[in-house]
């Protein structure tokens, strides 16, 4: 896994899941495997969101995503990391040829409730 963040310009970090994380991301928690949604969120997505104005996550190139992975990676930003859905709508861009993935991700973000 190449955990280096690719800076597209001064304000945007681009994360390509297939290239920088895994072509076959799988599972929700780190206990489910090394390329889980939790691992992606904690190792790549959260650091990128903290370092940059905007983050573009590119989904194309991976061999499919499970809802459990996407929910933990993106819904977990609200539930576990305490970020607000409105903030994510401003800072996060999802790039995918498949509309379904993008719609599900925003559904998970909007549906997640902060813990505690």
């Amino acid at each position: 896994m190449d955990a280096q963040l690719v800076r597209y310009n001064a304000m945007t970090i681009v994360l390509n899941i297939a290239k920088q994380f895994s072509r076959s991301p799988a599972g929700r928690y780190v206990t489910d495997g090394p390329f889980s949604g939790q691992a992606f969120r904690e190792n790549l997505l959260l650091p990128a969101l903290r370092q940059s104005e905007t983050v573009e996550v590119q989904l194309d190139g991976a061999l499919g995503f499970g809802s459990s992975f996407l929910e933990e990676a993106f819904g977990g930003l609200v539930r576990e990391a305490g970020l607000k859905a409105e903030t994510l709508h401003q800072k996060l861009r999802i790039s995918s040829k498949l509309k379904t993935y993008e719609q599900r991700i925003w559904h998970y973000v909007d549906d997640a409730k902060p813990k505690g």
Binding site: A26, G27, R28, Y29, T31, D32, G33, F65, G66, S67, S68, F69, E71, K99, T100, Q103, R104, H107
Partner: peptide, 21 residues
């Protein structure tokens, strides 16, 4: 059909899909 695709995706690959336990 995008909405129905999303529902199918969640039912097949939501929890406990790819869970270790």
């Amino acid at each position: 059909v995008t909405g129905a695709c999303g529902e199918l995706m969640d039912s097949i690959s939501g929890d406990p899909f790819e869970s270790a336990d």
